[in-house]
Nucleic acid binder design. Structure first.
Lengths: 214, 214
DNA sequence: ATTTTTCTCCCTGTTTTCGGGGAGAAAGAA
DNA sequence: TTCTTTCTCCCCGAAAACAGGGAGAAAAAT
């Protein structure tokens, strides 16, 4: 039987090794390589043609979701599992809309990972309980603790906030989103008003607190 | 032969599982239990009487170093290995003075972990290369890349960075420190240059990453 | 004792942010 | 349908940030 070929991307070597060990114990899967640098991963993964990509969300330079998005352009049928430290509704939604096949938290156990792998192997999706709870607005407590402040923002505003926190200039953001600079300035003003802070420093703090960026 | 009994503490279950796997492959060692909650670990570890404690530094509630310190009060001859994401000179020094037996980075590989375990088993200490380099101030480059980006800053600059990240305006910072606005502007320019970022957003991110502010 | 770094302050000038508006088109909700 | 929100873009002006430089006094390192 052909084994399912997996590539792991996590900026910490030790984590890569640990995840590899867990996966190697499952006969149907094999880890063919791992990357610690998301930029390097982006360049080299296409030649490996993996079946499933297991990616950490929090990485320097390029986050896991961005990496998946970019790789999907080259490998359209790539299946992906996103691993994350924190739970953020906006990110979860974004991940789902980008066709991420599974989304699991690092504070879950290996069985959760096995289930996710098994599901993704069978072309199904898997989102762990806390993830779906966040999406279903069931546990308001979790939501409140995780991203209450961002709740008042529109999707566009959240996106702009993320980019501001990534230290992009207004001009760059406008270019990235293909709109006028004045539009981004308007969004920024709305963000300052809605989040009740006085400058970008305040915006960045909230964005990081809410897990919008790392 | 008696196996060396290890307890792992890391707030992420998946990381605990991964580390366990790596260690279980080494015949001399066995992981007897793992904890995700440092508070729970503090209460229950004494009854396990482990030989070696493998602890993540970055944990909510109680960091790894604090946990080791507190446990040492109850188990004076406990040996410990500290795992960390980032490298901070002050923390390394504190760890050494507290008698932490090994200090390794998560972005290192499993062989590093094996070496550390072997050393600690033989009542020796182990500090991975980047750690000792930080202490010796030899490899400034590695310092810059791994952590202590703050290491290159003067005390004054760190203070100004903290205040910027707290979302204070330049005028307010100048007033608080009883210096001219131009002085703070000079400090800010130095910060941008030394930390290699382009705007306050970048400064705030680093300040938060380095734990200068929350 | 000499050199280097730090802290302080200043200059000039450009770019960006911030605060206050207004306004039209489109999409969704009531 | 009407009302509301969102997204877009514009105006203005004041304030702040950014970029490049210089410079002296004090402190720290060598």
């Amino acid at each position: 039987m052909e084994k399912i070929r997996i590539v792991i991307v996590d900026d910490h070597q030790l984590i890569c090794d640990g995840l590899s060990r867990i996966i190697q114990e499952i006969p149907e899967f094999e880890v063919i390589t791992t990357y610690q640098n998301p930029i390097e991963a982006l360049q080299k993964i296409p030649v490996w043609k993996p079946d499933i990509l297991l990616v950490d969300f929090e990485m320097p330079g390029l986050n896991g979701l961005e990496l998946i998005q970019k790789l999907k352009l080259e490998i359209p049928d790539l299946r992906s599992i996103l691993l994350t430290m924190h739970l953020d509704k906006a990110t979860v939604k974004e991940a789902l809309s980008q066709g991420v096949n599974a989304y699991i938290l690092k504070n879950l156990d290996e069985f959760e990972l096995r289930i996710a792998l098994e599901k993704v192997r069978n072309d199904q999706n898997y989102y762990s309980a806390p993830v779906t709870e966040v999406l279903n607005d069931k546990y308001k407590v979790i939501q409140k603790n995780s991203n209450s402040q961002l709740e008042s923002l529109s999707n566009r505003e959240r996106e702009v906030l993320r980019l501001i926190a990534e230290a992009f200039s207004t001009k760059e953001i406008a270019h990235q989103l293909s709109v006028e600079i004045s539009t981004i300035e308007t969004h920024r003003k709305s963000l300052l008003r809605k989040l009740d802070v006085r400058n970008v420093a305040g915006l960045v703090r909230i964005a990081i607190q809410e897990g919008l960026v790392t």
